[in-house]
């Protein structure tokens, strides 16, 4: 149904329909991507990366091998090392429960990887710990929404 009107009222009629929302957003993103392609030659990769990553296909941990030496002291790059005085000490990041287990039993070492403060997540839990907390919260909220929508009665 098309009604005559000023250009602006026709535009606002299209915008007010939420069925057009994803198309409108896709249009904006396509515009952004075009600008990105045009400016691509002027964008360079910065070699001085704070969080370097190298891929080693021969490693058994590929592609999650972040380097470093398990149970040793590893040099970890940090933006603000003064905020992370225990940088590089893997076992410094035990949760209170894990610390309790470590103090009371001799067997925590066998499950260190599955604990917060394990080996592979060391950099996440140390210098960027808040990110890990938020990621987990997003998952939790998403599951809560899915569970509510699935279980509600019709």
């Amino acid at each position: 149904m098309t009604r005559p009107g000023l250009v602006i009222s026709r535009i606002s009629r299209v915008l007010s329909d939420y069925e057009n929302l994803s198309a409108l957003y896709a249009l904006l993103v396509v515009g952004g991507v075009i600008i990105g392609i045009v400016t691509l030659p002027f964008i360079g990769y910065d070699d001085d990366q704070l969080y370097p990553k190298t891929l080693d296909p021969s490693s058994s941990l590929h592609p999650y091998d972040r380097g470093g030496e398990p149970f040793g002291t590893t040099d970890v790059a940090a933006q603000y090392p003064e905020n992370s005085p225990y940088l590089g000490y893997v076992t410094a990041y035990l949760t209170p429960f894990s610390a309790f287990l470590a103090d009371s039993t001799m067997h925590l070492g066998t499950t260190i990887v599955s604990h917060p403060g394990g080996i592979t997540d060391e950099i996440l839990y140390n210098t960027r710990g808040l990110d890990t907390v938020v990621e987990t919260s997003i998952l939790f909220v998403a599951f809560a929404i899915a569970a509510y929508l699935f279980r509600r009665e019709e």
Binding site: R128, L130, D131, V134, E135, S137, I138, V141, A142, A144, I145, Y148, L149
Partner: peptide, 23 residues
């Protein structure tokens, strides 16, 4: 004070907004 942390929080805002409306 961190770009990635900001984007994570923003995507959490988006998901919770969907949850409020979709209920």
């Amino acid at each position: 004070g961190d770009v990635f942390n900001f984007t994570l929080f923003v995507s959490m805002v988006g998901i919770t907004n969907i949850g409020i409306v979709a209920a």
